[in-house]
Design a binder for these strands. Structure first.
Length: 807
DNA sequence: GTGGCGTCC
DNA sequence: CAGAGGGACGCCACT
């Protein structure tokens, strides 16, 4: 028994707390299922015999469910919990998970009235059925039906002619039951499951897809495309690598339900003969290059690249369903076609994996049978048209969103395509030299560390490092990771470094290892052998706030803060006779805060072009501008950034290493000096609660339904997002507008300058060196003119032979 | 695939 | 009373 109590106390000490009311330990904190599993493993499976543990029931399960981001993770953990506690837990989760799914769906139904949530996934009916097989799914499925019906009704109202035909007749819209009101009794057990109306609807969709196998048929379609008001098209390719991919087929859709696939390069053994790719592309060229012939697609930037590989310049792209969905609601669904079809149309489309397989067994699209490829590809074009028919009327009904779409997101597509295609020149030899140097240093540090630790271990393994630091050497545990293990993060090691020698070595090791693995080793591998440059992908529909993101390689997280890191930037160079020009917006988010809040003090500071952190320090600490100490300026800077991120006094205290009370007094002083900022923040939170969303200066919306959550953590997270999103999002809008005008200048005037990178508040151009002086002026003017705010924008421009020296 | 960590704005 | 800083991507270890 003593052992049991010890184990329990150990458990309590190693995690955030315990629900177990035993041995004088108060039930104070939450325990999560994986911790129960650990616990039971520790004490042996005596769960039914431990007083108190059987109290884990629906109520506790509800707390866990609310706290977990991943329902799947929670369910899989719950499945492993043995004994009575497991039974109770699973019963509670079944009920609660289903009601949460219902709440999720319900929220989606009421768009745009209620808004949607962060990173919300589609309800996966087959999976729900598997999990809740013993439960009746009628109410859930009814809501899915009603969802489609209402969407279509709304679309029909907004645009009679554009109403899609996919509407399923359905009962009236669901009554407005608050999620929490869905009691367990509403979900009656029923062994006989309903048929799946979602799958059924897919099968019953009116569709006529044809496969084009002769030139007369092709000519017929080309004529129809030419006469159409709008057509959707899609290219099928051998690879997602946009520079090194071949066209396997193309598909078209003019009218929902009618689509055609043109197989061109299916080359498996026994493939039917197909039309000649070059000849078909030449027939399509005049259509695709005609700017007055409007086109629709899903992620057209990719198709632009693919066509450019064949010398075809896509013009006249008018609509892109990926961007329509993103502008409509950046978080209600992911913006790939399969997700959108499920979300907006209630359709389960044929996925790429369905026809090509997945993992190591995946085949190229050229190996897919023409029959299956035709179904898949024609459906893509068809569904693209259907999505557009439901999305565009919604956007037009919300004029600011339509304007954001027309003025910013759609025109940005060709700009990004050109940036990607141009690529960035990298000095491979320089990176390889650095890699060698880093490797030597890493080996030294490894030897020193092992000697100091008295044991050999893998420095790259946080788990092994935890054991060495906190078990073998007994260093104090200063912070724990979310999963309850002792953290070895940078801030912890910094603090430990004051009293112990090892953490400092590990910090240097980590820094070098990061530089080598992520940058000096990987970047050279990503240089295209043909162009000698790296060609990133900018993603336009990923970040909830409107920012771009970059992958393969990510050019938006190249080091800059440390001297060692900046050497990486020296390898970003320009071609002979050219230089890099880097132009970044100075303090753009704080300027936007001044604009949005209208705070007089802040407006004045920017109007007078003050050093904003210094000016803030002078106000907060009540000293003259020239009396502000470096320490005061540092504090003010932390306050300013904290405000942008919705940070609390607690967080500020930790950041600054001061007492919480001191941090609180800084915050109070700040708000006393800048009362407009506090008013703005209160008003923003209030608007988010009232409307369900916040918006940027240019009308971009971010929906935050969690701001009404009864779960405090989620609600506060939503509040921080509400504060941050208008500033971060407006900055994104502004730089996108700047990119469009800068690119237009590059294109129209045939100047020797090209946009090559964007890093959130910075644009990088490759400019012929003799043209630098003029480029500075032209780029600066366009960036400055990208928005008219109540404060001036400020752009800082530098240039040099490499990215480091351009700053 | 997930968690921990680290890079950027 | 607990929690406590927004948005991304990528590497490594580990399962």
């Amino acid at each position: 028994m003593a052992q049991l109590v010890d184990a329990q106390i150990t458990l309590i000490n190693t995690m955030s707390g315990s629900i177990l009311d035993r041995a004088g330990v108060k039930a104070k904190f939450d325990v999560f299922p994986e911790q129960i599993i650990d616990y039971l493993a520790l004490v042996g499976d005596t769960s039914d015999n431990i007083p108190g543990i059987d109290k884990v029931g629906p109520k506790t399960a509800a707390k866990w469910l609310n706290a977990y981001h991943s329902l799947d993770g929670l369910l899989s953990h719950a499945a492993e919990v043995p004994g009575k506690v497991g039974e109770n837990l699973r019963a509670g989760l079944d009920t609660l998970a289903l009601s949460r799914q219902l709440a999720t769906i319900r929220t989606d139904l009421e768009l745009p009235l209620d808004g949607a949530g962060l990173k919300r996934r589609e309800p996966d009916v087959p999976r729900l059925r598997a999990i809740y097989g013993r439960l009746e799914l009628r109410s859930l499925l009814q809501q899915l039906e009603a969802n489609a019906a209402r969407d279509n009704a709304a679309a029909a109202m907004a645009s009679e002619s554009a109403a899609p035909s996919a509407a399923a007749p359905s009962a009236a819209a669901p009554s407005a039951v608050a999620p929490s009101d869905i009691a367990p009794s509403d979900i009656a057990p029923n062994a006989a499951l309903l048929s799946d109306p979602v799958a059924a609807r897919l099968a019953s969709l009116p569709r006529e897809y044809e496969t084009i196998s002769d030139y007369a048929q092709l000519a017929h379609w080309c004529e129809a495309l030419k006469r159409s008001a709008l057509f959707a098209f899609d290219t099928e390719t051998t690879s997602l690598d946009y520079l090194n991919t071949e066209i396997v087929g193309v598909s078209f859709c003019i009218e929902a339900g009618h689509a055609a696939y043109v197989p061109l390069a299916h080359d498996y053994a026994g493939a039917p003969s197909q039309l000649d790719r070059a000849r078909v592309l030449e027939a399509l060229r005049p259509l695709l290059e005609d700017p007055s012939l409007p086109k629709l697609g899903q992620h057209l930037k990719f198709d632009m690249h693919v066509l450019e590989n064949y010398g075809i310049a896509l013009r006249g792209q008018r609509f892109d369903t990926m961007l329509e969905s993103y502008v409509w609601n950046s978080t209600a669904t992911r913006h790939d076609m399969d997700s959108m079809a499920a979300h907006y149309l209630g359709l389960r489309t044929i996925h790429f994996e369905d026809v090509a397989g997945k993992g190591a067994k995946q085949i190229g699209f050229n190996q897919v049978s023409v029959e299956r490829a035709a179904e898949y590809s024609a459906e893509d074009a068809d569904v693209t048209m259907r999505l557009h028919q439901t999305l565009w009327p919604r956007l037009e009904a919300a004029p600011r969103l339509a304007q954001l779409y027309r003025d910013i997101e759609q025109p940005l597509v060709p700009v990004l395509q050109r940036m990607e295609r141009r690529g960035v020149l990298i000095d491979r030899a320089m990176l390889q030299t650095q890699s060698g140097e880093l490797l030597l240093r890493l080996r030294e540090l490894e030897a020193l560390t092992h000697r100091e630790a008295g044991a050999a271990f893998n420095l790259d393994s946080p788990k092994q490092l935890q054991q060495i630091l906190f078990e073998r050497l007994g260093l104090p545990v200063l912070r724990k990771t979310p999963s309850g293990t002792p953290s070895t993060g940078e801030d912890v090691l910094e603090e430990l470094a004051a009293n112990f020698p090892l953490p400092k070595l590990i910090l240097e090791y980590r820094g070098c290892a990061k530089l080598r693995s992520t940058y000096t080793e990987k970047l050279p591998e990503q240089i295209d052998p043909v162009t000698g440059r790296v060609h990133t992908s900018y993603h336009q529909a990923v970040a909830a706030t409107g920012r771009l993101s970059s992958t393969d390689p990510n050019l938006q997280n190249i080091p800059i803060r440390s001297a060692e890191g900046r050497r990486i930037r020296q390898a970003f160079i320009a071609e002979p006779g050219h230089s890099l020009l880097a132009a970044d917006y100075s303090q753009i988010e704080l300027r936007i805060m001044a604009h949005l809040s209208g705070d007089e003090g802040l407006l004045r500071a920017f109007a007078e072009d003050r050093d904003i952190h210094q000016a803030t320090a002078a106000e907060v600490f009540g000293v003259a501008l020239d009396q502000v100490s470096l320490e005061q300026r540092r504090s003010a800077k932390a306050i300013n950034f904290g405000l942008i991120y919705g940070m609390s006094a607690f967080g500020l205290a930790r950041q600054l290493g001061v007492a919480r009370g001191a941090a609180q007094s800084y915050v109070d002083l700040y708000f006393a000096r800048y009362p407009g900022v506090r008013r703005y923040m209160d008003a923003t939170r209030e608007q988010a609660r009232r409307e369900g969303y916040v918006e940027t200066v240019f009308g971009r919306r971010l929906y935050l339904p969690e701001i009404r959550s009864r779960n405090r953590a989620m609600q506060q997270y939503a509040e921080r997002s509400a504060i941050n999103a208008p500033m971060q999002g407006t900055a994104a809008d502004i730089i996108k507008r700047a990119m469009i005008t800068v690119d237009r200048w590059c294109q129209d005037e045939q100047v020797p300058a090209r946009l090559i990178m964007q890093v959130h508040d910075e644009l990088v151009l490759e400019v012929r060196t003799d043209f630098l002086a003029q480029a500075r002026i032209e780029v600066g003017a366009r960036m400055n003119g990208a928005a008219q705010l109540a404060v001036p924008l400020k752009v800082e421009i530098g240039s040099g032979p490499n990215w480091d020296q351009a700053h």
